[in-house]
Design a binder for these strands. Structure first.
Lengths: 183, 183
DNA sequence: AATGGGTGAGACATCATTGTCTCATTCGGG
DNA sequence: CCCGAATGAGACAATGATGTCTCACCCATT
């Protein structure tokens, strides 16, 4: 009887990922509940998006933890992270394009923390001689986000196979398109 | 006196790139004209977005032409293209996220044509032994779009320098983050 | 079986945006 | 210099989404 808030959030994430301008009514239907109930759990659309933001940050952080970024070669850590982040890729793509989140001054500082951890991984890779130093950690971080979003979108659209998600992103980000002697 | 339609479109592109949900009133103000005039030139918001789509496709195609994709090494051609596409990167990022464009069946077939030309470049690079073959042309095309969008956003936000736009994208896409013997 | 909390459906007012219209003004070509 | 076309500002109705409320109903607990 009682609605599972977390389940509603995940359904909302799917609906909004598919169409960012979905109405509260569409979100409610996607979650299999009534619009009134949706409003009972989230004061409004704003609150819903904020809750999704928190969920996304939380899962992103969980993926970072599970990937153990500090252990082993930075490239391997990056591969682990991409594998862990795959289930949330669609939600993250939605949140990133929801640029109104980043307009106000009340920007969730969780993003900065996540950016910091990802940047730190790239920096570690550079300091240990594994990554090239002419591409800044900030850019590598942005690029990783962009590739994750692109891959999530391509998989959702059936242009690439879901099973290749981790491989495609990691190989492109680490090795690039150029054929090199190693590999 | 008479409004320059092309100039209005470019102003609209800037406004909508910055905030995808900008109202017609905001777009009009951004273009320095009245809302009534905006409606006189574009029958409605739908028509405006369609016009922007056509503009984006046209400029994208112009960038492809200017880059002479068939000439020389594929990597060099890609670099030229990235340089040429830089001025339209923001508009393209907006159009790609405006996924409602791709819901209806009346999807502008210009996108397929552009995708084809970009994919062909990657395929040529693979056939000539310049690019690795374990990453599909379709994925490399998606990745290129994603990186262009990420870079445009990062530059707009001041996280990376505008002058590095071409270099960052090309180096990452071609060579990847890993340090390799060549380079 | 009785009870109470949570829910779905719908009604309702409110609000923002859109699209259309009018009218005064202004700019440019003849 | 004058006339006409295009513009800006504002009024207006229509539309769609939002947020709130009521009420009947269902299910779980007691």
């Amino acid at each position: 009887m009682t609605v599972d808030r977390d389940q509603v959030l995940r359904a909302a994430a799917v609906a909004l990922t598919r169409k960012a301008t979905s109405t509260m009514d569409e979100v409610a239907k996607a979650a299999g509940i009534g619009r009134a109930t949706l409003h009972r759990h989230f004061a409004g659309r704003e609150a819903l998006v904020r809750a999704l933001e928190n969920l996304g940050i939380q899962e992103f952080e969980a993926a970072l933890d599970a990937a153990r970024l500090d252990e082993g070669p930075a490239g391997d850590a990056l591969r682990r992270f991409i594998g862990e982040v795959e289930p949330v890729a669609g939600l993250l793509a939605f949140l990133v394009t929801e640029n109104q989140l980043f307009e106000g001054e009340e920007m969730n500082d969780g993003w900065a923390r996540l950016d910091g951890r990802v940047s730190a991984l790239f920096r570690r890779g550079q300091e240990q001689g594994e990554f090239r130093i002419d591409l800044t950690p900030a850019w590598l971080t942005e690029a990783l986000y962009g590739l994750i979003g692109s891959a999530a979108w391509a998989v959702q659209d059936g242009r690439v196979a879901a099973k290749d998600f981790q491989y495609m992103i990691a190989e492109l980000l680490l090795g690039g398109a150029r054929r090199s002697v190693e590999q």
